[in-house]
Design a protein around this nucleic acid. Sequence first.
RNA 1: GCGCCAAUAGCUCAGCUGGAUAGAGCAACGGUUUUCUAAACCGUCGGUCUCAGGUUCGAAUCCUGAUUGGCGUACCA
Length: 594
Amino acid sequence: MTQTIQQQLIHHIKQAVKTLFDGDLPEGQITLQETRKEFEGQLTAVIFPITRFSRKSPEATGEAIGQYLMQHLPEITSFNTIKGFLNISLSDTYWATLFTTHISAEGFGRLPSNGRKLLVEYSSPNTNKPLHLGHIRNNLLGYSVAEILKASGYEVTKANLVNDRGIHICKSMLAWQRWGNGETPEGSGMKGDHLVGKYYVLFDQAYKKEIDALKAAGQSEEEAKKNAPLIRDAQELLRRWEAGDPEVITLWKTMNGWVYQGFEETYQRLGVDFDQYYYESDTYLLGKDLIKEGLDKGVFYRKEDQSVWIDLTADGLDEKLVLRGDGTSVYITQDLGTAQLKYDDFGVDESIYVVGNEQDYHFKVLFLILKKLGKSWADGLFHLSYGMVDLPSGKMKSREGTVVDADDLMDEMEDTARKRTEELGKTEGLAATEKAHLYHIIGMGALKYFLLKVEPKKRLLFDPNESIDFQGHTGPFIQYTHARIKSVLTKGDYGSQSIIELLTVLAPAERDLIQLLGNYPAVIESAAREFSPAQLANYIYDVAKQYNKFYHEESILKAEDGNVRDFRMNLSAATARVIADGMKLLGIEVPERM
RNA sequence: GCGCCAAUAGCUCAGCUGGAUAGAGCAACGGUUUUCUAAACCGUCGGUCUCAGGUUCGAAUCCUGAUUGGCGUACCA
């Protein structure tokens, strides 16, 4: 199939306008959409734009175009015109052929390589506290976007830029030195990231007390924050770290090691992975040569105190500091450097940053600066900005303990999955390990789908008191559909049938399902272009829903005709493949039974 | 103050580059199982698409201006 029916229709409509009305209508102005359920047909051409050529009523114009198309495309069996809409019916043979030659063919849904390289940076955690629900959204988005881009033909590298240095980790280190009594993950049985997070919270509590005491002694809030002994000690620790003090470095390595072990566990459970790790302790000094480059090019300028700036007021932004007066880096200095590093390492055409929308301004500035520095690759940079995950009480704050912990949440999801499954009692005969795996798949499916079905840009509300659903528009609904198909195929001994004849008559639910399945490659393409797993998630739901309708209306194994039976098994198998494949791109597994 | 983003059913969300009477799920109510897994299917109820202008044959969608909410505007990251 070199040309889709959609492309053929558009082509012939253009020809029709030319032949019938002597008009030249650009193909881009012809809109083709799927026919709404309440009308007859599968594809609909909007003919309002054509009336300016035909100088006839929309109905008469549609009628004329319809006649022309009927004569030129044998796939069309009938058409009707309602208002300005030309509804076109294609033959069941066309849909059956589309299915056998295309949808059920090998590699359906994988677009050919486009020869482009792309890097997705996501996760990028701080090493002073465990991951929470907000990080989960980030991780799932990053992973899924990377997988979708792979499926659409990119060569993708997944990167994680770990923020392993700075004042935050020094706070945890200091608190552990003071009050830790040598506590270790092994000794306490606590997961490493949680252990370090515990000391981060301890620091913060003690720090707050000191601030209050200083304020009571007459200092202003600002002064108190600066003068509290704890923060001064933490800063001293940071200075010693930067100076390479062996004692500090050893402690830093130890505690980060604990955190990494904890993160690794969480990542594994979450099902995300990375091809490349970057550590800020390696990269935080980068970017200074770019500053020099910018100064030489006159993009930056130096103030009297030796600090370096860029004036972006002409672009509607502000003046921005890019290097401190003492010559040390700020956040954006490093990011300039790591952008260059990533490009040098991988030579990618595009580079995606999965980072929350609180940093919209930062990335706007970053990309603009790189463009002004004349970096050819700056146009390929994209900030995939996503909304925060909020609780009904407002924003999650790790220091105040109002966070939904990632590990706890996964525990809960798996536990709920177990309860639900046990209630339904369909897992007899499964070994204990198989059951545990199933609960994991279902619990994570519910959680992941819940987070991914929402458009990244939108903020997400999570109510811990309302458990995530397992029915309706959910991950388990889709997983269930897959399991049920597998069950039918097993019972029907799928795979043993001989090559089937082409059907010429389809049930409406079959035809609708085929049409929907046919959209899969276009959905992947669109989800990739817009970096939106949500588009794919919603599509898979539509597929599952449409399959369930078909399943309910038509008998598969007990079909009156053997050929029909085999066709329906093939259709079911293809549906299962699309569901499994699409879910895989979302990072969600589907079970064989549930 | 200035900038960015969002606003669609009681709740959570779809709605592709403007196209028909704005769709799902949850919640509520009713129906479907001697038939391939009822985590399903079918139906009922539920909408001034925040508001006001504008562009258009046609606006939830585009433009302008308000309102509400979130975020940012650091020699923090």
